[in-house]
Design a protein around this nucleic acid. Structure first.
Lengths: 111, 111
DNA sequence: CGGCATCCAAAGTGATACTG
DNA sequence: CAGTATCACTTTGGATGCCG
């Protein structure tokens, strides 16, 4: 039983970001620094399928990390962007990134 | 194909800590602040099986987060503790924890 | 005590094709 | 364009039992 798996804030964060493409999606939205279209994400993440992209976007949206806006124009268009909440994750993500770089440089883990 | 999944330091960190019991194990070792026996971990994580505990410990060991010491005494004994490297993760884990708490308080995610 | 071997269930990911 | 639907595959986690 999961018991109180979600009493731990760290595990909650992990559960929000766990998913093969969550970090790549976050990175893209963060770095482009403006709303990105579904098709742009699809193009930017060459190995992802539409099904998975949609799934991961839906989850990030459900968890309040990104926001989805649909423009039902002649040419349908949907844009995604980080919410303020999502943006605020950058604080610990930066720390993680630093640690990860050091780890990798120090010969941390080889694949 | 994972392509360059591990070019991203953040993803490397996630891969190190992903696993149902990695965080609980880390927490226990961190808070007890001294080597912990296999049986103590088993007792402290009621829902884990021995197979899984061993697996996750082996992975954390392989990734340099914990250290395993075996005392082949009359009564066999094995102890695990965080390495300096493992301990240094606390920096970003603390940040994550803060973020997670705020997230939960603000009604973040309900299960 | 501290495991490992088997076997199995569930979750996650993906390829492909179809749709409003 | 931005999705769904289906089916298949891979990875992960777990139950149980045996062993030095």
């Amino acid at each position: 039983m999961p018991v109180q798996r979600n009493d731990c804030p760290v595990e909650v964060v992990f559960s929000i970001l766990s998913g093969r493409w969550k970090i790549p999606i976050y990175r893209y939205l963060y770095k482009s620094n403006k709303p990105a279209r579904y098709s742009a994400l699809l193009r930017h993440l060459p190995a992802i399928s539409k099904k998975i992209l949609t799934e991961q976007l839906r989850e990030l949206e459900r968890d309040g990390i990104i926001e989805r806006t649909s423009y039902p124009e002649p040419r349908p268009r949907v844009e995604y962007k980080l919410t303020a909440h999502g943006l605020s994750m950058i604080e610990f993500l930066d720390k993680m990134s630093e640690w990860g770089e050091t780890y990798m440089l120090s010969g941390g883990k080889r694949y």
